[in-house]
Write a protein that binds this DNA or RNA. Structure first.
Length: 424
RNA sequence: CGGGGCAUAGCGCAGCCUGGUAGCGCACCUGCUUUGGGAGCAGGUGGUCGCAGGUUCAAAUCCUGCUGCCCCGACCA
């Protein structure tokens, strides 16, 4: 991609109404623009990053045997009346009428729809176990949207639903999804913890949350420095009679391994064992060998758009975003310095650009007629991991300057070693 | 929903107190000179001053109502 053809949307100044760093940087780097409170446009760079999150999730879901479907964003309110959640969800559920005066709502989640779908789709126990998922826009009419796409009203979510004959099956399906989630977050490359959670309004028994560690997180987590033990600190203090969570720091971990540390977390994933709650209420029955049963259900969510913000919260500096390689909108930037009257520099950029494309490296060639500082600053705020600098200094030599996003100074590599340096 | 703040060009802001028909920086367009960390000069484009009433010869400015956005709290995934 040549920068001259890219709608970049970078801004020099911070927007006055963005509070947290990820929100500021997403606007400065041209990832998003606000439309209304809690509702955003995703610009080309932002969409590319979001797409990468989606692709990683999609791949691991498919790998785990889940099947992708797409359910509607608009749902009949009658289904929510049937499940009884129309009152429970309250005003967060955006309800409206169509021209025939039938009531609909924008889907904040899809337990009702999937259960209803499966009433027609799943007829025999031989089809079980099965897990279906979608990656789709959700709408929750938050009381107070804030922090950009971190707590927005409209957001992109992957939600999966499993159906099993019995509790043992549900345990197995849940475990498969949990392992897929671990692979997703490892692959994205964020520092995260899995914590025991309160299953809240969605209902059901077991539930665990995946949290990306970041100072701006809305939840306080307590976890062991030696084991995988981790919990929401507020749940832990409840057990210990309302004491200040900060007093837990340094105490022995409840599992006896290591001591407790406290950090804030951003919830990016949540997995539940729903049990028969929805299959009973909505009357989903499947024929087993000898009788009809209500299947055991699980549901599994990942906030795709929230992951983008969380990744930035965890990885940035005063210059801008520092993407993990898995999410970077481009792998390499070519900064063309001093192109006027220097046909050779443009030619050399073109040569390297072609080399990158041939090797399927996603490259942004900054061929704009801008000062070098503008180009360096744009590459840095966007967070492109590696920059190749082509200018007078190296025009005559056989060497090329490359600079990592966090390097102080560029280093020189020979033309023939260029690819090897980029690929690793 | 309670408390606080803001609304003037794409972004950041001044002007409002004391009414006289809109300005600055950045961005954008044209030209020339520049070019290794957000260039200089010259010229230029772009705004029903959030909306609706009212007061006045005259309203961005004063008055009333409304709307939107942000922050804190309560709520929640």
């Amino acid at each position: 991609m040549k920068a001259s053809h890219l709608i970049l949307g970078t801004q020099r100044e911070n927007p006055s109404d963005a509070e947290i760093i990820s929100h500021q940087l997403m606007i400065k780097a041209g990832l998003i623009r606000q439309v209304s409170s809690g509702i955003y446009n995703w610009l080309p760079i932002g969409k590319k990053v979001l797409q990468k999150v989606e692709d990683i999730i999609r791949k691991e879901m498919n790998e785990a045997g889940a099947q992708e479907i797409l359910m509607p964003m608009v749902q009949p309110a009658s289904l929510w009346e049937s499940s009884g959640r129309i009152d429970q969800y309250g005003k967060e559920l955006l309800v409206f009428e169509d021209r025939h005066e039938n009531r609909f709502c924008l889907g904040p989640t899809h337990e009702e729809i999937i259960t209803d779908l499966c009433k027609n789709l799943l007829t025999s126990y031989k089809q079980l176990p099965v897990t279906l998922y979608q990656i789709q826009t959700k709408f929750r009419d938050e009381i107070r949207p804030r922090f950009g796409v971190m707590r927005s009203r409209e957001f992109l979510m992957k939600d999966a639903y499993s159906f099993d004959l019995d509790k043992t099956g549900l345990d197995r399906s849940y475990q498969v999804m949990k392992e897929a989630y671990i692979k997703v977050f490892n692959k994205i490359g964020l520092d995260y913890r899995i914590v025991k959670a309160d299953s809240g309004t969605i209902g059901g028994s077991d539930s665990e949350e995946f949290h990306v560690l970041a100072d701006s997180g809305e939840d306080l987590l307590a976890f062991s420095d030696k084991s995988t033990y981790a919990t929401n600190a507020e749940l832990l203090t409840e057990l210990q009679d309302g004491q200040d969570p900060s007093t837990l720091e340094g105490k022995e971990s409840p599992d006896g391994k290591g001591i407790l540390k406290l950090k804030r977390g951003i919830e990016v994933g949540h997995i539940f064992k729903l049990g028969k709650k929805y299959s009973e209420i909505l009357n989903l029955k499947i024929q087993s060998e000898d009788k009809e049963i209500n299947p055991e259900m699980g549901c599994y969510g990942i906030g795709a758009s929230r992951i983008v913000a969380a990744a930035i919260e965890q990885n940035h500096d005063d210059k801008g975003i520092i993407w993990p390689e898995s999410l970077a909108p481009f792998e390499v930037a070519i900064v063309e310095v001093n192109p006027k009257n220097k046909r050779e520099i443009s030619d050399k950029c073109a040569e390297i650009y072609d080399l990158m494309k041939k090797n399927e490296i996603d490259v942004l060639w900054d061929n704009r007629e801008k000062r070098p500082g503008v180009k360096f600053n744009d590459a840095e705020v966007i967070g492109i991991p590696l920059t190749i600098i082509i200018g007078d200094r190296t025009l005559e030599s056989k060497e090329i300057e490359i600079k990592g996003r966090q390097d102080e100074k560029p280093k020189l590599v020979s033309h023939q070693d260029l690819l090897a340096n980029i690929i690793d």
